[in-house]
Structures are given as C-alpha cells and as structure tokens.
Amino acid sequence: MELIVQGIIKAFELIISFDPEVMGITWLSLKISGTATFISLFFGVSIGAGVALTDFPGKRIVISLINTGMGLPPVVVGLFVTIMIWRSGPLGFLEILYTPYAMIIAQAIIATPIVMGISLASIQSLPANLRLQILSLGASRLQMAWILIKESKLPLLAAVMAGFGGVISEVGASIMVGGNIKGYSRVLTTATVMETGRGNFDIAIALGIILLILAFLVNLLLTHIQQRQRLR
C-alpha cells in the first residue's frame, strides 16, 4: 500500500515540477501517436468510404477483413513491420528500425483499420438514397463521396478517438520497432514497461497517470466537439 501511495506522491511531484524527461517522453508520445492517427485518418477514411460506396464482388469478405483488422494485435504488427524494415528486409534500405518513423508506421498500421471500419460503417448507415439524391443534384462521384464523409463527421470523430486511443496506449509494436531508446524513441508506454521492470514504481505510476490524463483530455476535447455538433 505504502508503495502505491509513495508512487502517487512521487508521480505528482514529477508532473507538477514538469520533469524534463517525463515531459519529453509525453511530448514524443503525442507527436508519434498524433501523426500516426492523422495518417490513419487519411487512408482509413478514403479506403473506408471507397469500400462503402462501391459495389464489387467479394465486398463482404473485404468488410470482414477490415473488421478483423480493427482488432489487429500490436505485437503482430510490430513483428511484421520489424521484418519489413530489418536491415536485410525488403524496406531495410530505409534504415528506420528503432526510430520514431518506424513507430509512426507501426501505429498507423494499427489505427488505420479502426478508422477504416468506423468510416465504412458510418457511411453505410446513411440513408441509401442519399447518395443518389446528391448525384441527382449534379454531384460527380468524388463530390458525392466528400459530401457523405462530411455528413458522417460525428462517427468519424469517434473513429479519431478510437484510433488515437488505440495507438497511444499500445506498447508491443512501439517497443519492437522503436527500441525504447532514451530521448529518441521512448514513449509513455514503453517507458512505463521499462520502469516497472526496474522496480521504479513511482516513475511508472507517474507515466501511467500522464497516459490516463492524456487519453482523458483528448477524448474530452473530441467529445466536446461531437456534442456541440450534435446540438447544432
């Protein structure tokens, strides 16, 4: 019990004093996961909308694959990305293993199916005749897709939340492809794992609390936007 209380006190000391190392780790986590979510939004929404708006043979299988991808185990992604960017791997020439770039790639791969699945479902849940109505008002197919994406912005905000929440709290892939290098590729989750392993529970608790606060703040912001949209 004492361990936990001490840990929490120490954690707040670290947070309130803006401990440079802790702040550095937090900032890096936000940058990596934010960039990965942004990338996943681009691919996820465009592919999700594309699948929702076109009819092709095997569409159901594709949708099942996307839905399966929403629960992609981060360690599997980590393994796959590591093999790809390993020195002798197909993308080895990029020399990005154990860099933040590798972490962004891995996290984007984890978040993309989540964003894709939610975009797909939200566009499919719009009234079937809405796209015909928009086309009939003179839209090209691209204009129609854009209007539908804008129309489902509320569920898409949920997709952003789910995607960001998924990657900021993910540890397996980050540690595998990022290497947890101090000051370079050490993020909140990988640092928490390391400090816990070392028995530095106070720092681990501090990092855990920051992670929770971060997740809470991001979701608070997005929920605020979402609710304001809903009330408009």
């Binding site: 009234p127 005749n129 809405l130 015909l132 109505q133 009939s136 008002l137 003179g138 209007i147 129309e151």
Partner: peptide
C-alpha cells in the same frame, strides 16, 4: 433532378 420520397437533407 429527382426528389425522393424521404427529404434526405444534410
């Protein structure tokens, strides 16, 4: 231009 049964407003 077609107008559908349901209003289909954005």
């Amino acid at each position: 231009c077609v107008v559908f049964q349901e209003p289909l407003l954005l």
